[in-house]
Measured scan of single mutants.
Amino acid sequence: EDAPSSDDLEQFAKQFKQRRIKLGFTQADVGLALGTLYGNVFSQTTICRFEALQLSFKNMCKLKPLLNKWLEETDSSS
């Protein structure tokens, strides 16, 4: 699987934040939901840093598919 470019990540982080707010979730909600869904709880700080593009590139790449999946799950259930 190709690693996303930093442009991709930036684009995704923006879209993710907009969708999250529109769906009415806090950063902490998302962190907990990831724990429920995938067994990895993320702190509010981590989600905040992801949205602000302040995580390392490697961590951004790791989180992106999880957050993407969460969006898909959340979209389909709302």
Rank of each mutant, 00 (worst) to 15 (best):
1 E>Q: 15
1 E>L: 14
1 E>G: 11
1 E>K: 13
2 D>H: 15
2 D>W: 12
2 D>T: 15
3 A>V: 10
3 A>E: 11
3 A>G: 11
3 A>L: 15
3 A>R: 15
4 P>Y: 15
5 S>T: 14
5 S>I: 07
5 S>E: 14
5 S>C: 14
6 S>H: 15
6 S>I: 15
6 S>R: 15
7 D>E: 13
7 D>W: 05
7 D>C: 06
8 D>E: 10
8 D>G: 10
9 L>G: 02
9 L>K: 05
9 L>I: 05
9 L>A: 03
10 E>S: 04
10 E>W: 10
10 E>N: 11
10 E>C: 09
10 E>V: 07
11 Q>K: 13
11 Q>F: 10
11 Q>W: 02
11 Q>D: 13
12 F>D: 00
12 F>K: 00
12 F>G: 00
12 F>T: 00
12 F>S: 03
12 F>C: 00
13 A>Q: 02
13 A>E: 05
14 K>D: 01
15 Q>R: 11
15 Q>K: 09
16 F>L: 03
17 K>F: 03
18 Q>D: 07
18 Q>N: 07
19 R>E: 06
19 R>T: 11
19 R>D: 06
20 R>Y: 01
20 R>P: 02
20 R>K: 00
20 R>D: 02
21 I>N: 00
21 I>D: 03
21 I>S: 05
21 I>L: 08
22 K>Y: 13
22 K>H: 13
22 K>Q: 12
23 L>Q: 06
23 L>C: 03
23 L>W: 08
24 G>C: 02
24 G>P: 02
25 F>P: 00
26 T>C: 06
26 T>E: 06
26 T>I: 00
26 T>R: 03
27 Q>M: 07
27 Q>C: 13
27 Q>S: 05
27 Q>G: 03
28 A>W: 05
28 A>I: 03
29 D>L: 03
29 D>T: 04
30 V>Q: 01
31 G>L: 04
31 G>H: 07
31 G>A: 14
31 G>W: 04
32 L>E: 12
33 A>L: 12
33 A>T: 05
33 A>Q: 14
34 L>P: 01
34 L>E: 03
34 L>K: 02
34 L>F: 05
35 G>I: 00
35 G>M: 05
35 G>H: 05
35 G>P: 00
36 T>N: 11
36 T>G: 09
36 T>C: 08
36 T>F: 02
37 L>N: 06
38 Y>Q: 08
38 Y>T: 10
39 G>M: 00
40 N>R: 13
40 N>D: 13
40 N>A: 08
40 N>G: 12
41 V>S: 13
41 V>T: 14
41 V>R: 11
42 F>I: 15
43 S>E: 09
43 S>F: 00
43 S>R: 06
44 Q>N: 12
45 T>A: 11
45 T>V: 09
45 T>Q: 14
46 T>I: 09
46 T>W: 03
46 T>R: 04
46 T>N: 05
46 T>C: 02
47 I>Y: 03
47 I>D: 00
48 C>K: 12
50 F>C: 00
50 F>M: 03
50 F>T: 01
50 F>I: 03
50 F>W: 02
50 F>E: 06
51 E>G: 07
51 E>Y: 00
51 E>K: 05
52 A>M: 06
53 L>M: 13
53 L>F: 07
53 L>P: 01
53 L>R: 11
54 Q>S: 09
55 L>W: 01
55 L>Y: 04
55 L>V: 04
56 S>A: 04
56 S>V: 00
56 S>M: 01
56 S>T: 07
57 F>D: 11
57 F>M: 11
57 F>E: 09
57 F>R: 12
57 F>N: 11
58 K>C: 03
58 K>E: 12
59 N>V: 11
60 M>P: 00
60 M>V: 02
61 C>G: 04
61 C>K: 11
62 K>G: 05
62 K>M: 10
62 K>Q: 08
64 K>A: 08
64 K>L: 04
65 P>D: 11
65 P>K: 09
67 L>H: 11
68 N>I: 11
68 N>M: 13
68 N>C: 11
69 K>D: 08
69 K>R: 11
69 K>M: 09
70 W>Y: 07
70 W>D: 04
70 W>F: 13
71 L>I: 11
71 L>S: 02
72 E>I: 07
72 E>A: 08
72 E>F: 04
73 E>Y: 08
73 E>Q: 13
73 E>C: 10
73 E>G: 08
74 T>G: 05
75 D>P: 15
76 S>K: 14
76 S>G: 13
76 S>Y: 04
76 S>L: 10
77 S>L: 10
77 S>F: 07
77 S>Y: 13
78 S>C: 13
78 S>P: 11
78 S>K: 14
78 S>Q: 09
